[in-house]
């Protein structure tokens, strides 16, 4: 195995009395697409900020490209690209100025920065908007510009914090396509998301975080196999009566989850479970059998209570 590109050991981040990240171990290999999954407040963004070398770990060690993040922050930042959760685009500049001036922060020559700007505008499908003021762009365009900007230093590692939150489905697919291309070019991707489809699409390997800790690790498929059944039966009952169904459903499948809007029955044979439920007198308003997804793993591992 090659040396890990990212190597975090017992990483802790505290803000006063609050522990946002509570001793996580993470290794990412070059070329991998790695995801941090977790509900809001799980510690994903704090972890990303430490990896981006803009936030010092409270404890533990963090090495990137074999360099100690505590002492080589600037050298590490020179080799990574960051797409923050909220756009930090320069609203006083045009699209292309946002790119080439950012390149200057990485000490690129003006000519080189402008050359790369041209390429990146193509890549982000923004060539026609090169002279637009950033404020006039759509959400999807701004996101693509953020990604283009993060690539100006030709990073070996790209950090994306919830890259597609708030985008419409078309814009998300365009973005996924661009990220997939980068991955094929050998760029290592580390991203956070709470969209399970995004994680399944993009990540070779991921960790699920909850309350500052890593609660599971593996490929999307292996996590589903490990933590969920093959199929899931989704039952919808009249509003407010979900809790009354537990007696009728007890013992069907491997386990049940009562969600606010539906009851999930985890079973290897969903149809059989539905027949069983009917036999026991359950009368759902609707029923659906589907394959288990990463979302089921997520719900199991991080609990269903609403996290603010």
């Amino acid at each position: 195995m090659t040396a890990p590109l990212l190597d975090a050991h017992r990483l802790v981040k505290r803000f006063g009395d609050f522990t946002a990240v509570n001793g996580i171990d993470v290794q990412v290999q070059p070329g991998e697409a790695f995801g941090f999954l977790g509900p809001n407040g799980a510690g994903k963004s704090s972890t990303m900020r430490m990896i981006a070398c803009v936030s010092a770990p409270s404890e533990g060690s963090l090495h990137m490209f074999g360099l100690d993040a505590a002492t080589h922050g600037a050298a590490i930042r020179a080799r990574i690209g960051v797409v923050p959760q909220l756009d930090t685009l320069d609203t006083e500049l045009s699209v292309q100025e946002n790119l080439w001036l950012y390149g200057r922060f990485f000490d690129l020559s003006r000519a080189e920065s402008k050359r790369r700007t041209k390429e990146l505008l193509e890549f982000a499908q923004l060539s026609e908007r090169a002279d637009s003021i950033v404020d006039n762009l759509s959400g999807g365009m701004k996101r693509r510009l953020s990604i283009a900007r993060s690539l100006i230093n030709e990073p070996e590692l790209l950090l994306l914090d919830e890259p597609t939150t708030g985008l419409d489905p078309q814009a998300r697919h365009v973005l996924w396509d661009r990220l997939y291309r980068l991955k094929q070019q050998g760029v290592t991707l580390v991203l956070t998301t709470h969209y399970m489809d995004e994680a399944e699409q993009l990540c070779d390997r991921l960790v699920v975080m909850d309350q500052g800790r890593i609660v599971a690790e593996g490929s999307p498929r292996s996590l589903i196999e490990q933590y969920a059944t093959r199929e899931v039966l989704e039952l919808r009952f009249a509003a407010g009566t979900n809790d009354q169904q537990t007696a009728a459903l007890a013992g069907i499948g491997e386990r049940q989850e009562v969600l606010p809007d539906r009851v999930l029955v985890y079973a290897n044979d969903g149809e059989a479970a539905l027949v069983q439920a009917h036999d026991r007198g359950a009368r759902p308003e609707s029923a659906l059998v589907r394959r288990a997804s990463l979302e089921d793993v997520f719900l199991l591992l991080t609990g269903r209570s609403l996290v603010d």
């Binding site: 981006a52 803009v54 600037a74 050298a75 930042r77 020179a78 960051v82 923050p84 909220l86 930090t88 685009l89 320069d90 609203t91 006083e92 950012y102 922060f105 990485f106 000490d107 900007r149 230093n153």
Partner: peptide
């Protein structure tokens, strides 16, 4: 606009 955040993600101090 948070452009200082953006600047500090580069080698800028």
């Amino acid at each position: 606009s948070r452009i200082y955040d953006a600047a500090l993600a580069t080698p800028m101090s």
